[in-house]
Design a binder for these strands. Structure first.
Lengths: 230, 230
DNA sequence: ACCTGAACACCGTTCAAGT
DNA sequence: ACCTGAACACCGTTCAAGT
């Protein structure tokens, strides 16, 4: 529905063989781009090779000339999101530089909340993920942190980032963010025989994701900062 | 392969109608149990309603008398894992009690590493998840932490737990844990033009998950502890 | 070199029919 | 009340055939 197509499409469905001159040629990039658009609209579980092909006005099997399989498409989506993380400024305190990477990471994920789990739940060994990783450790090394310790701190911080963002993107727009919404959930919380839960139920029912992220980021980065020499 | 079946099975495939007296009757619990066993053996993505039914020696459609749909089965698996978290001792310092919950959570996930993502990636609003949540906040409240702050701290710590465990269970048994294995990955790391990465590459290539978890847990809980009054 | 379509081996789930 | 099987509308992917 309502997908604005560029003028460049392959011809009517009867076609066969090479595309006519002037039509956009297929490529891994274009496949991933179409897949990401589809995920943004319909969600990760709604994606299929056949739907991606349909959106590109191409036979489903044509995709396999440019990607290995569906998993490769998901890898491509993850890379695309990671590429959206801005390079942080190289000046500023270690703390400020680490904050910049973390916030850039969050912003990049929130730009495609439905696609974000591809990044957050898979092994990010791709080159696209290495740049932000490097940007995150650099401040620690510059501050004199020994490499071994820097990796520990990096992994702890990354754990927090991944877990927090996964919660945020999974929550969906209609839960946690709206103070009036938590009714049913609140009831669930209070019905249990857990006194410590009933005490915090009102606060659990709402969640300002931005504020929550900043609270946790401050907590973690303060702890990391304290590990630095000097 | 090699699945040890109890004596209680429904008859040969020709059957129809109610099961014969003496055969184990189907139930939500038994469906979830079979599904979990299947996930443990073959992985989350290999699960299907049809395979679960096959393992129970039952028509695939019979499952729908006890679960709403496939997603409901996954919810059941998540609940089962959460139920495996031991109730922590009520005595000890706040710090010790929080550590106990965190380690119990990790142990429960590692008991079913292939199923753990069901817990880690979905909204855990089920009653089974509330008990550990209550056990985790209780020490904070007991220490005089105001409820609002306790929820912030809880969410930050939970973010770390989820992100860390997701990395651990996704890593698989053959990566990170073995010092000799990281060869190819190491080469990927060093080939990039990122000096800060080459500096830490040897440490990134290996990962003792247990030690990493304890490092991060100490980092986070120390930070949380510092927020407590007194 | 790239695109195509038929075909294969699967899916989740609805529904009417059994007992 | 519960189990069954046929049927529907999908999947991802292989392969031989086209241009």
């Amino acid at each position: 529905m309502g997908h604005t197509d560029p003028v460049t499409t392959t011809g009517p469905k009867g076609r066969r063989g090479r595309p006519p001159r002037g039509s956009a040629t297929l490529s891994r990039e274009r496949v991933v781009e179409a897949a990401l658009a589809l995920v943004d609209e319909e969600g990760l579980d709604q994606i299929s090779m056949r739907k991606i092909a349909q959106r590109l006005r191409v036979d489903p099997m044509s995709l396999y000339n440019h990607v290995a399989d569906k998993d490769d498409v998901l890898d491509g989506i993850a890379e695309a999101l990671l590429a959206g993380i801005p390079a942080p400024p190289a000046d500023g305190s270690p703390r400020e530089r680490m904050e910049a990477v973390a916030r850039g990471f969050r912003t990049a994920m929130l730009a495609h909340p439905k696609a974000a789990p591809t990044v957050l739940t898979r092994q990010l060994a791709s080159p696209a993920g290495l740049a932000p990783l490097a940007a995150a450790v650099a401040p620690l090394l510059d501050a004199g942190c020994p490499p071994r310790e820097a990796v520990h701190a990096l992994r702890a911080a990354l754990g927090f980032l991944v877990g927090s963002l996964l919660r945020e993107v999974n929550a969906g727009p209609s839960f946690g963010t709206d103070p009036a919404a938590g009714g049913q959930r609140r009831r669930t919380l209070e019905s249990a025989e857990l006194p410590s839960l009933t005490a915090i139920a009102p606060h659990l029912a709402v969640c300002d994701h931005e504020a929550e992220f900043e609270y946790g980021l401050d907590l973690v980065l303060t702890a990391v900062e304290r590990k630095l020499p000097g």
